[in-house]
Design a protein around this nucleic acid. Sequence first.
DNA 1: TTTTAGCACTCTCCTAACAAGAGTGCTAAC
DNA 2: GTTAGCACTCTTGTTAGGAGAGTGCTAAAA
Lengths: 357, 357
Amino acid sequence: MEISERKKLILKAAVEDYIDTAEPVSSKGLLGRLKLGVSSATVRNEMSELEQMGLLEQPHTSAGRVPTAAGYRIYVNELMGQNGVSQEEAQVIAENLQQPNDASDRLVADASKLTSRITALPSYAMRAAPGEVTVQRFELVHIDQHTFIIVMLLSDKRVENRLVTLPTPIQQEILVKLAALFNASFTGKPESDMTTALITATERAAGDTAGLTAVIAGFVIEILMQTKRTHTIVSGASSLLDHPEFRDVEKAQRVLGYLANEQELRNLPAPDAEGVKIIIGPENIAEELKDSSVVVAKYDAGDNMQGIIGVVGPTRMDYSRVAARLSYIAGGLARALSMGIPIGLEEITEGNDDDGR
Amino acid sequence: MEISERKKLILKAAVEDYIDTAEPVSSKGLLGRLKLGVSSATVRNEMSELEQMGLLEQPHTSAGRVPTAAGYRIYVNELMGQNGVSQEEAQVIAENLQQPNDASDRLVADASKLTSRITALPSYAMRAAPGEVTVQRFELVHIDQHTFIIVMLLSDKRVENRLVTLPTPIQQEILVKLAALFNASFTGKPESDMTTALITATERAAGDTAGLTAVIAGFVIEILMQTKRTHTIVSGASSLLDHPEFRDVEKAQRVLGYLANEQELRNLPAPDAEGVKIIIGPENIAEELKDSSVVVAKYDAGDNMQGIIGVVGPTRMDYSRVAARLSYIAGGLARALSMGIPIGLEEITEGNDDDGR
DNA sequence: TTTTAGCACTCTCCTAACAAGAGTGCTAAC
DNA sequence: GTTAGCACTCTTGTTAGGAGAGTGCTAAAA
C-alpha cells in the first residue's frame, strides 16, 4: 500500500512527538510540530487512516495515538533523519576509548559502560565467538625454584598468562627446553588437537618423567577453553528504570532478568555487516523483549578481534540518536583495539607516518 | 534497660515472622510461632512495651508491628541463631570456586556472582586497595621485528601483560638487555619512584637512543597505576526487584544507582577482622542505603590478595542465613586464591603432603 | 473532492464516600 | 500477672460522579 507524502510527515511527527513526551499524541498536539497549514480535523482523518494501516494505535477509544511496531519500522527505514554525534560527545567518546595500551577486555568493558552512559540505556557487549583460537607463541618465565609463569600469545592477539606454583623444584633449563618444544608442537593447533597422544609425545621428547609437560599442557588447554567462553558484559542495567515504560516493576524485571542471563544474550541477533541493526518490539524472538527494542552495532578490529555492542530499551526510543552513537562508539572501539600504538610513541614515530592526528 | 526473657522470645519471633512474610506481624499471628502458653492479649501487652523500647513499630495505629533498626540490631547481636550452610550449598560453592588456576580477578568475579545467586541479593566485591604494588619481576618476550610482550609479576602475585607493537624494528638482544636492566633498577619500586631521572639513567645504561626504554617505562607506570584503581564488581543487581520492599521503583532506583557508582561503593565500611559485618538500615552513612542493609565479609589470601565481598538488601533480611553464606564464600575464595595448585597435580604430589582431603 | 467547524460520545483519571476487615488499646474480671 | 471482650482506628477495595481530553462523524465551506 502506498503512503502519501502527507501521511509520512504525520507519522514522522507522531513518532517523534511520542519519543519526546511518552504520551499518546493527539491530532491537535501535532499541529505545532507539523507546519502544514491544515486543521486538527484533517490531521485526525489522516491519523485515523494510519491507524487502519496498522502504523498507529489507540490505547483506548478516546486517547491520542501511539506508534505501533510497524509504525516504528517505517519510521526507522524511511523517515528518520541521520543523527550526528555532537562535538562534545565525540570528545567524551574519544577520551574514554583512546586510552591506548589497555588490555582489550577492559577496553570492551569501558566501551559498554560508555554506551550506557551516553544513551541512558542498559548496554551489552560481547566478543564474537572466535572461530578457533590457537596459540601463536609460548613462553615460560622462571621466577624461582617452585614458580613460573606461562605466557601465551593467542591467534587473536590476546595475551594470556598464569602463575604456576609447584611443590617440586623446577630448573630453569627444563623450562627453556619445554618452551621450545611447546612452540614446536603446539603452536597453530586448536585446543581440540591437543590430545593425550600429542602431549605424551612431547613429554617423551622432553625426557620429562615428572609430568611437568602434562601439567603445563593442562593449563594451556584450560586457558584455550576459557577463551572460547564468549564473555558478555552488561552495563547500566539499572538505567532501564529511568524510563517511564519501566515504572512497572514486573516489566522491568523481565527485561533485567533477560539481560542477566548470558546464555540468552548470546542468542540476540547481530548485524550482518558493519552497520547498525535495529530490532523493534515484537520483532524480537525472545519473549521477554517483545515490548522492548534492541539496537546493536558490530565492531571489527581485524585479527579475529570482533564483537558486538548494543543497547536495550523501550520501543519508544530515539532510534536515530542511539544508532548514531552506537555506530560511532563501535567504530572508535575497533580503532582503539586495532591500534597497538602506545603512549608517548609520537616522539619515536615523528615523521614516520604523516596522516597527522 | 533490661529486656525480659519473654520479651526476647517475642522479639525474636516477631523478627523471624517478619523476615518470612514481609507483613507486619500481629499479636495473634505470633501465637503459632511462640510456644508460650499465653494469649494474644498478653503478647499484645509485651509487644506494646517492646514498641515503647523502640524495638518494634507500627506502620499505622491498627496494623501489626514491624521491627525497627534497633530491633534488628538486638536480634543480630543477641538472638539470632548460628545458621549453617547446607550440604548442597557447600557443594555448589565448592564447584564454583575450586576451579584452580583461574586468573584471580575472574575468581573474585565468580565469587560475587555466586554470592548473588545464593543469597538472591545484589552482591559486590572489591579487592582491597593494595598498600603499594611493586614489580617483582620483569620479562620482555620478543615476538617479531615489531612486536613484543611485557610481562610483569607484581608483588601481590598478579601477573600483568601488554602486547606492544612499534613501528620501528626491535632486536631481540636489546630486549634481553633491557629486561635485565629493568629487573635491576625497577623491581621493588612503587610507581611513584619511577621518576624521569630513573628512567633516563636506565636509558643511558642501556645505551638506548631510540627511547624504547622510556616507552616501556611508560607502560610499566601505566599498568601500576591501573592496578591501583581498585576494581569493583557488582552482580545480580536486578535481583533487588524480587523483594517486595523494592516494588517501589523510586526506592529500587536509589539503591541500584548507588550500586552502580564505584566511587560510592568504596566508601562502604569493611569488617575489621575476619568476621562478617552487618550494617542495618539507618546505620548506613550513605543516604541511599538508609533503609537497606549491608552484610559484608572480608577475604584474605595473604600476599596482599585481600578484599571484601558483600550484599545489599532490604532491612528485612535473613541476616543469619546471609551472613553464614557470605562468610563461607569468603573463606572459600581466600582458599581458592591462595592455592596456586594446578589441575592434575595430585599425581605429582602423591605422598608429598599428607593432610589427605 | 478535500477541508473544516461543531458537537456528541467515550474513556481515563481523580476524588469522595462507604463498607469490610484486621489489629490494636483499654477495661474489667479472673 | 493474665485474659476476654469490645470499642476504636486505620487500611483497602469498591462504587459513583464529575472533569477533561480526544476522537468520530456529519454537514457545511472551499
